[in-house]
Design a protein around this nucleic acid. Structure first.
Lengths: 110, 110
DNA sequence: TATATTAATCGTAATATTGCAATGAACAAA
DNA sequence: TTTGTTCATTGCAATATTACGATTAATATA
């Protein structure tokens, strides 16, 4: 019904899915890569960098902020965004554990 | 418009997003974890393990298979699924690089 | 104060995703 | 051949996501 039955799964599984979901759009991947690349904080020129309209970028930034992966600082009329490093590291731990779960055994069966 | 403008982004960004998207649902996270945990190949008892209906599980398996992360083998009336290890490793390289891009510098700006 | 700039929010249209009942296809066993 | 088992596919309803024009809010500047 278009609604993920998240109550059927563990908190851990839902957390992995939530992080993955936010990376599941190339615009958000692009925003994060840009925030990592630029060593000074990027503000609204993400709109110019990426080709999407301002409300669209703003919406993507909101989702990234909601998950805690970025933080925004108001500077005059513009807003400066950057990676929230502590939260990024915490996310990375969770996602890496999920990606690396195959290291325990190595028997292929089909 | 509900449609990701993937032509605006690089192949690499789209690839990351595609992998992430498939992990963006707890049912698929759960299926993958189960396939990793069970050292013999699990077939249709994924339906019993996870609480979703058979067509729903089948649909999730299809998406995982489409991305190459799992493979299925017909064994009589049942189908045996397991992780596609080579493709999983390749995916892991791409995703890990994305997750680890913060290691280069460490200045927080906002 | 009036005007410009920047970014968030609202409203809405188009499309995608999720879930399942019903059905179908393939095979095994009686 | 008939029956049962297992899984894929179809069709559809409910909900979510994406994108953007229009507007609003906040601040800076003339």
């Amino acid at each position: 019904m278009g609604l993920a039955k998240s109550e059927m799964f563990t908190d851990h599984q839902n957390e992995i899915a939530l992080f993955a979901k936010v990376f599941g759009h190339p615009a958000r991947v692009s925003i994060l890569q840009h925030l990592f690349k630029i060593d000074s904080c990027v503000c609204g020129d993400l709109v110019n960098e990426i080709g999407l309209a301002q409300p669209t970028i703003s919406q993507h930034l909101k989702e990234l902020k909601h998950l805690g992966l970025i933080k925004g600082n108001v500077e005059g009329t513009s807003v400066c965004y950057c990676i929230h490093r502590e939260n990024w590291t915490a996310m990375k731990t969770i996602m890496s554990e999920f990606l690396n779960q195959d290291l325990t055994y190595n028997q292929d069966c089909c």
